[in-house]
């Protein structure tokens, strides 16, 4: 099971790198979503997979009696998903606003903040 998820993480990362190398900012963003899910899966697997053993504690006991799944990575993944969701919502809005204002999604054409050779231009 771990191997399967490891392969899945690899595929996700490969796909996201391909997307992130594109000039279009929107594709970059999709790549980012994929890679963040890959990272979440990495955390999930790093707690080792223990199927069919929910981390529940019997009433009256202080700790689970048998071996159960590690709950901590799941809590971490949950936190990471929530944070990631917020960030992507923001990033998507930012990209949309940028498209409205600059009229392009091509990162090569976004040169307003760093114009090419400011000094050479007026002397021409």
């Amino acid at each position: 099971m771990e191997i399967l998820i490891a392969i899945m993480v690899g595929v996700l990362v490969a796909a996201s790198v391909y997307l992130m190398l594109a000039r279009s900012v929107l594709r970059f963003l999709f790549g980012l979503i994929l890679i963040s899910n890959a990272a979440n899966l990495v955390i999930f697997v790093s707690g080792r997979l223990t199927p069919e053993a929910p981390p529940l504690i019997v009433e009256g006991a202080d700790a689970p009696l048998a071996e159960v799944a590690n709950a901590l990575p799941q809590a971490l993944v949950l936190t990471a998903i929530v944070i990631g969701f917020g960030l992507f919502a923001f990033a998507l809005t930012l990209v949309y606003r940028t498209y409205q204002n600059l009229g392009t999604l091509n990162s090569d054409e976004m040169r307003l903040a760093e114009p090419i050779d400011v000094k050479a231009e007026p002397t021409k």
Partner: peptide
């Protein structure tokens, strides 16, 4: 700002 922001954020 939007232009710089895109690079910073991503």
């Amino acid at each position: 700002q939007l232009d710089g922001g895109i690079k910073y954020v991503t």
